[in-house]
Structures are given as structure tokens and as C-alpha cells.
């Protein structure tokens, strides 16, 4: 009797394995070809190549990309260009011709994929708001910019400001004009830096686009090479 019971339990277990074979945890996943541009591809590509610097919230040292506010303003063509060619001191070009890992088509797909995940409708046409990534930034008036800085920024970001100086030549050498522009416009609210349109000292309604251009131009003059 005992043997019969053991044998039947064993048989049932074997049968269960046979029936469940393709659903067992060890069954290899079918090799689905990776579709460039699919959401899973976009996310995996972002996580492997971008997330180190451009993450979300307070994480990551550079401008967060998981950020609808950014995608509302930024322009796809220009983002594509920055990814392909790189920018400033720290952002390398990711196009294969520049030694990067991606073809031009893959970069297009990545930008489209990120926009559909985080940004909604693509933004085309001319920049109407400050901060749109642009190869030829609007050149502001540096003299006016000095006044804007003194009234709006110096409280926190002056030479001995509590949030740390932004006129430090070492800092300015590391950040491009576009980087300054993005820093002013988007801020990093999680880190306590407000975006351009939030109230600031002497500017209860935030800065105007002209003031952003002016203050960036003034900061650029402080950069020494």
C-alpha cells in the first residue's frame, strides 16, 4: 500500500511537470527579436546609456530626462542633435560616426520613444519659450543680465551664496551656454532650485524669456578658458 501511494505521488508530480513544462520557471524565454523603437527597447536603451547622468527627481547629476516639463518645451530635432554630437565637456556624442554606439535611425527612435513615454505631443516649429534646445541660442544683453542676476539670483547663487556660486569660473568652464539655459529654465525643484517661471526675489512672477537670455549671456561672459 505504502509503495503504491509513494509511486502514485511520484507519477502525479511527473505528470504535473510534463503538463506544465513550457511554463516552468526554467523554460527559456523565446528569443523575441528586439524591435528598435518599442517601449521596452527605449527604456532599456535609456537605462543603459543615459540614466547614469539624466535620471529623474533628485537622482542623477545632470538634467533629468524623466520629466514631462522638459519634454513640453524641448524640440525633438535639437535633442536628436545633442545626442548624436554631444554637448559641452561631459556629454559625449552617441552617433556611431562619433564613436558612439547608435546609428542615426536608432537615435531618432530613442528620441521619439522617450517623448511618447514622458513628453506627449512632439514640439515642432520655432522656440517660443526659453529653454528650447537651440544650436544658436538667442543672444541676450549681458549688461542687462548683470542686473537680472543681482536682483534675482545673487541671493542664493552669488559668490558666497548659500546654494553655491554659479559665477565660479571652474563651474562655468564645465557647463555650456545651453546647459546654463536649461539650468535656469528647468531648475531642479527636488533639489530646491526653482524653474524660471516661479517667484524669485524681486521677480514675483518669475523671469521673462528676455531676462533668461540676458542672464545666460552675462554668465557666459564670466567664463574664462
Amino acid at each position: 500500500m505504502m509503495h503504491l501511494r509513494v509511486a502514485s505521488v511520484f507519477l502525479c508530480a511527473m505528470l504535473a511537470i510534463v503538463v506544465a513544462c513550457e511554463r516552468l520557471p526554467g523554460a527559456p524565454k523565446a528569443s523575441i527579436p528586439v524591435v528598435v523603437g518599442s517601449p521596452s527597447w527605449t527604456l532599456a536603451t535609456f537605462n543603459t546609456n543615459c540614466r547614469g547622468c539624466h535620471s529623474q527627481g533628485a537622482e542623477g547629476a545632470a538634467l533629468p530626462l524623466v520629466n514631462p516639463g522638459y519634454w513640453k518645451i524641448a524640440n525633438d530635432d535639437q535633442i536628436t542633435k545633442v545626442i548624436a554630437l554631444g554637448q559641452g565637456v561631459s556629454m559625449p556624442g552617441y552617433l556611431d560616426e562619433n564613436g558612439g554606439p547608435f546609428s542615426a535611425d536608432e537615435i531618432d527612435a530613442l528620441v521619439k520613444g522617450m517623448r511618447s513615454m514622458w513628453g506627449g505631443e512632439p514640439h515642432d516649429g520655432n522656440p517660443v519659450l526659453p529653454g528650447t534646445i537651440s544650436p544658436t541660442l538667442v543672444v541676450g544683453d549681458a549688461v542687462a543680465g548683470a542686473l537680472v542676476f543681482e536682483s534675482a539670483c545673487a541671493n542664493c547663487h552669488g559668490a558666497n551664496g548659500p546654494a553655491g556660486s554659479v559665477t565660479d569660473p571652474m563651474y562655468l568652464r564645465l557647463i555650456s551656454d545651453q546647459g546654463l539655459w536649461s539650468a535656469v529654465v528647468y531648475g531642479r525643484s527636488e533639489l530646491g532650485s526653482p524653474p524660471w517661471n516661479s517667484p524669485m526675489p524681486n521677480h514675483p512672477n518669475g523671469l521673462t524669456p528676455t531676462e533668461v537670455a540676458d542672464v545666460v549671456s552675462w554668465l557666459a561672459t564670466k567664463r574664462t578658458q
Binding site: 543603459t48 547614469g52 537622482e59 542623477g60 533639489l191
Partner: peptide
């Protein structure tokens, strides 16, 4: 390129 700097080191 894949491991973001943790928030406590940025704040």
C-alpha cells in the same frame, strides 16, 4: 552610463 548618482549625493 547606467547607474544614476544617488539622490543623497546630489542634494
Amino acid at each position: 552610463s547606467s547607474l544614476a548618482t544617488p539622490a543623497q549625493f546630489i542634494k
